[in-house]
Simulated assay, not measured.
Amino acid sequence: MAGDLVDRFRLLVAACCDQSLSPAARAVLAQILDHYNSKTGQCTPSLDRLARTSGLARRSVVRAVKELRVKGWIDREHAIREDGRAFASNHFRPAFERGDLGTERSLPRDEAVPTPGDETVPRVGTKRCAEVGTKRSPEPSKKNQGKGTKSESIDDAAFDRFWMVYPRKVAKAAARPVFDRILSKAQATADELVAGAERYAAATAGKDPEHIAHAKTWLNGERWTDEPARHRNPDNGSAARLHQSDIKPNSATAYLMERRARRMSHG
């Protein structure tokens, strides 16, 4: 009987090979075929139901049904009410003949089951799919084959070493993408970031954590390039600065002080 599982499968595959069909039209056609009753030949889903089952808006379903009709994938009939004033329901008739490429089946219709090696079923991206007027699907790019994502290519141990020495351990999840980006763009090596974090930890030792930057802020600011702070020696120059009382008077000062003392002693 026309419209069995094999016919519906064939028609859906052929429609998927039609590059002129929009994704919404393919989704609506799949739902129409899902509602098709091969025993009675009835297919009467409402537009609202097609919208719910396909996840599309009702207006998108209306446009998709119109597109399928114009391109010959379905036919739509209306059942009119007895009063003749409105449509009672929609009756869709899928164009199953478009899914049959004229090949002979090795098994009876009831026993024919499509398998990965079944040549009676057109496969997307093959020459048989091109026979229904579609283009061969592009092959996957070889440039990205065998390569993982950037985050996968970076050793997790590198960030763990950085995080172990960084002085303020908050917002770790926010710091990790920035750390990976710096390594992937070769802005710095993992050892340089770890060394910079160690210098920053030494410079901020004993400080209030609120005055220590988050790791994300530190990385975005390229703080690993900061030069180490030079600590001033508290004894530097102290030997040259003597207290006033320790300064010995020179000969002129001694002479004046002695003369003044004599005047005072003689009254």
Rank of each mutant, 00 (worst) to 15 (best):
Lys135Ser: 01
Ala130Ile: 00
Met164Phe: 13
Thr189His: 04
Gly196Ala: 06
Asp110Ile: 11
Gln187Ala: 07
Ala213Tyr: 05
Trp163Ile: 01
Val121Ala: 07
Ala157Tyr: 15
Ala188Tyr: 01
Tyr200Leu: 07
Pro114Trp: 06
His214Ile: 07
Ala174Cys: 12
Lys127Asn: 13
Trp163Leu: 08
Glu131Ser: 02
Asn220Lys: 14
Glu104Cys: 06
Lys142Asp: 00
Thr115Arg: 14
Glu104Arg: 12
Glu111Ile: 09
Ala201Ile: 01
Asp156Phe: 15
Thr134Leu: 01
Leu107Asn: 08
Lys169Met: 02
Thr120Glu: 15
Val113Tyr: 04
Thr115Asn: 09
Ser141Phe: 04
Ala197Asp: 01
Lys127Phe: 11
Gly117Cys: 13
Thr217Ile: 08
Asp110Val: 06
Ala190Ser: 07
Val124Thr: 15
Pro114His: 03
Thr120Asn: 12
Leu193Cys: 00
Ser106His: 12
Arg136Ile: 15
Gly146Val: 02
Glu104Ser: 12
Asn220Gly: 06
Ala171Met: 09
Gly125Glu: 06
Arg105Asp: 12
Asp191Val: 00
Pro108Cys: 06
Val194Glu: 07
Pro138Arg: 03
Phe159Pro: 01
Lys142Met: 09
Ala190Lys: 01
Gly148Met: 03
Asn144Tyr: 07
Ala175Gln: 02
Gly148Ala: 10
Ala175His: 02
Lys150Ala: 12
Lys185Cys: 11
Ser184Val: 00
Ala201Phe: 09
Ser141Asn: 05
Gln187Thr: 02
Val170Arg: 14
Glu210Leu: 09
Ser141Trp: 01
Lys185Ser: 14
Ala186Phe: 15
Pro116Cys: 07
Lys169Glu: 03
Thr115Lys: 13
Thr126Arg: 10
Gly102Leu: 03
Ala175Trp: 04
Ala190Val: 00
Arg176Asn: 01
Trp218Val: 03
Ala186Leu: 04
Asp160Thr: 13
Arg181Glu: 15
Pro167Glu: 01
Lys216Glu: 08
Leu219Asp: 01
Ser153His: 15
Thr204Asp: 05
Pro177Gln: 06
Lys147Ile: 09
Arg128Thr: 08
Trp224Gly: 02
Arg223Thr: 10
Lys172Trp: 10
Val165Glu: 11
Glu119Phe: 08
Ala158Trp: 11
Phe162Gly: 04
Gly206Thr: 10
Lys135Gln: 04
Ser153Met: 15
Ala174Tyr: 14
Thr120Lys: 10
Ala173Tyr: 11
Asp208Leu: 01
Asp160Glu: 14
Ile154Asp: 02
Val113Leu: 04
Ala205His: 06
Pro138Phe: 03
Ala188Lys: 02
Arg223Tyr: 06
Val132Arg: 12
Arg181Met: 11
Glu119Pro: 15
Thr126Glu: 00
Lys207Phe: 09
Glu139Thr: 14
Arg181Asn: 08
Gly206Pro: 04
Glu119Ser: 10
Arg161Cys: 11
Gly206Leu: 03
Pro177His: 00
Lys207Gln: 12
Thr120Ile: 08
Ser151Phe: 14
Ala174Gly: 11
Ser151Ala: 13
Phe162Asp: 03
Ala202Asn: 10
Arg199Ile: 10
Ala201His: 03
Ala186Thr: 03
Leu107Met: 14
Ala112Met: 12
Asp191Cys: 02
Arg105Leu: 10
Gly146Tyr: 06
Asn220Gln: 13
Ala173Val: 15
Trp224Ser: 04
Asp156Asn: 12
Val124Tyr: 13
Tyr166Met: 03
Thr204Pro: 10
Arg105Phe: 13
Glu119Leu: 12
Ala202His: 04
Gly102Arg: 10
